[in-house]
Amino acid sequence: MARIVVITSGKGGVGKTTTSAAIATGLALRGHKTAVIDFDVGLRNLDLIMGCERRVVYDFVNVINGDANLKQALIRDKRVDNLYILPASQTRDKDALTQDGVERVLNELSEDFEYIVCDSPAGIERGALMAAYFADEAIVVTNPEVSSVRDSDRILGILASKTRRVEQGGEPIEGKLLLTRYSAERAERGEMLSIEDVGEILAIELLGVIPESQAVLNASNAGQPVVLDEESDAGQAYQDAVDRFLGEERPLRFVDVPKKGFFGRLFKG
């Protein structure tokens, strides 16, 4: 049985797809057979971030509708063993994601994968609800900014009430916070919500903090999940998050302002 992990946020553009690619790749790098599914039907993007856009033949909706089987639709990653991508459809709308259809695909994947990572679309409509419904775990991607934090709290409300687990009388899944695009400098100057601020408001376990980083843009330009950029701050921060996700303890990195020398201060004015 696979663990189903949803990467969600409510607000758009906060880093869900970046995170889905990074976490799925990180899990596969550690030897866990992992599938990452793009639930953003109509706005396929995970394929680009994973760098497999030219290899897409069939998609998630094709499998749901029985036009293709899973074997035909799953794209095997060329760099990392144990990693497979199921792309979203570009031509269909979100109504194509029927609950039965999604369940069938997840059940079939569950038979031979250890982790299924679901890249949720923004919003709280069908696509996002379907991505969350079957989840065993949730990673709530949040930027240190008012609308993102508020939307994350709404998503936590949905996770607490609208999942299969809850409907079957089980314990609600506990979302874990991944704070992304964080700038220690700006937080220290009081211009950006700090890790503690966001933690206090959302009151959930902190899975990690990913700094605002040029490496993320470089990674998406190249079609390489940022965890593969081992030198980069964001890549390492995602590696730490994967380790914590798997139960290891890792201190937070890249969350303090580097102390400037004399020249740094001089030029900053």
């Binding site: 900014e145 934090v149 009081g190 211009e191 601020d197 408001i201």
Partner: peptide
């Protein structure tokens, strides 16, 4: 500081 205003409102 703007962050503390943000926090209170949130």
């Amino acid at each position: 500081k703007s962050a503390s205003v943000a926090k209170e409102r949130l």
